[in-house]
Design a protein around this nucleic acid. Sequence first.
RNA 1: GAGCGCGUAGCUCAGUUGGCAGAGCAUGUGACUUUUAAUCACAGGGUCCUGGGUUCGAGUCCCAGCGCGCUCACCA
Length: 495
Amino acid sequence: MDQTPNIYEQERRQKLTKLREAGIDPFGQAESGILPLADLKAQYQTQMGHDGGPVVKGSGRIILKRDMGKLSFLTLRDDSGDLQVALDKKRLDERGWTIRGLLDLGDLIVVEGPLGTTNKGETTIWASRIEMASKALLPPPAKWEGMSDVELRYRHRYVDLWTNPQVMELAKLRIRIIDQIRQYMRDRGFLEVETPMMQVIHGGAAARPFVTHHNALDMNLFLRIAPELFLKRLLVGGFTKVFEINRNFRNEGISPRHNPEFTMLEAYEAFGSWETMANLVEGMICQLAENLFGGLKIEHKNADGEVVRTINLQRPWRRVRMTDLVEERTGWKFDQQPISDQQKAAIRESNPGKDLKLHGSPAEQLVEVYEKLIEPTLIDPCYVTHVPSVIIPLARKNRQDDYFADVYELAINGQEISPGYSELNDPDVQAANFAHQVGDKEEQQKTDDDFLNALRHGMPPAGGMGLGIDRLIMMLTGADSIRDVILFPLMKPHA
RNA sequence: GAGCGCGUAGCUCAGUUGGCAGAGCAUGUGACUUUUAAUCACAGGGUCCUGGGUUCGAGUCCCAGCGCGCUCACCA
């Protein structure tokens, strides 16, 4: 950043000096009795008249200012909303009037006075006292357009939050959603636990990890890619229903659907199955939609307010085998054999622009076709079941056909939002699965001997599930980018 | 990691064929005691992302780099 203050900062610094010369601390002090602006606004009733309301104290940022000689109107904003303040020369003492003359857009102030209204009916605090809470040395963005450059918005979220009210609303909505998820899980007897984020062996998913270093032990540690193996250790330890909501870290590309750190719910239930977990997730998301929006239809709108997508969460949600879905959409009847050249050519031809490799085992080919061609089109919730078991080394095989695992992958809004397994608890099968994996060597799961040791002590049959919280919030709110639902997405520093 | 697009005042954006750097908001000064994006008058404000090149002359054309966005790859 430029170290020499520009003209705007210089002007504000001059006001800083003038405030101090008048014996006023531009950066304020502790105050008691400040209430949210929205609460104050709600206290006003018509019979209170012009200025007959209770004396109230509020604070906020000056987002609009209208000066008229001996009277000023300010619009203050805090995290509850906006409220108008009137600064009337007759009501303020000399100190207060001095402050009025040195106010700028963006300043944080405290005001106290009777609640009332103006001729035009705007609820207003008629300030009898004003204090500086913090002088803003930098100017806010244009009052009407706000801050719209996405790079600036992400880098300066601290400005984005108060200039764009919908950003604050979305941040608060995220908080409510996570709150309600916790409540939903607790209501069903799940205990929230915490497991290591720094791990000696990273497991529980197929992904490249971040590496860090412990100085005193002189050893590398990995930021977790999933909490799965530790949550299962807790089942071995005797917990029967546990969940964790926290960050996972994956050293992969960044996109509108991927942030290097993302928030995940994982839950495990002794004697559950992929089906009990599917029911758990289905109930949770429907309850969230009902509580937040009063219905099961989610509408995504574009900038012009037009509905671009409707997601119907009406139960029951579709459950379909991955092979059936692939056949339905592409005509490829999967027979556990490599895809024929003819079929390969047909799929490529009808899907131009998609880089279909169709290398590797038949299972990998099936999953590639599903993930690249079908998953992005699944807008309404869909549980895709019977995924080839070689892809999922931590899940149980299906009893009828052990080529497939007893799992679901839940897609909504064109994204995988939740996987659920009937968890594998046979230590010998687990050891064999670690040893015989497909796919990229760097992303393969490492054999975790301590985890295998835990399984040898006995883990109950269990259902397990994960839920990508950021993507869930994207689905519920219609956000197009994961960066819009994460307050501080990762950004490269400027050169 | 690859392709495409973008980067101009504090913010939001124009900028013609390569010919003095523009607007709105914001800011400063003045007027104004009921405004609602207050209004009116005047004024100030620029590393045109960075570094090279072509040219008499580059915001504009060329090359390289940086950052951001989108698509693809990877993945949840």
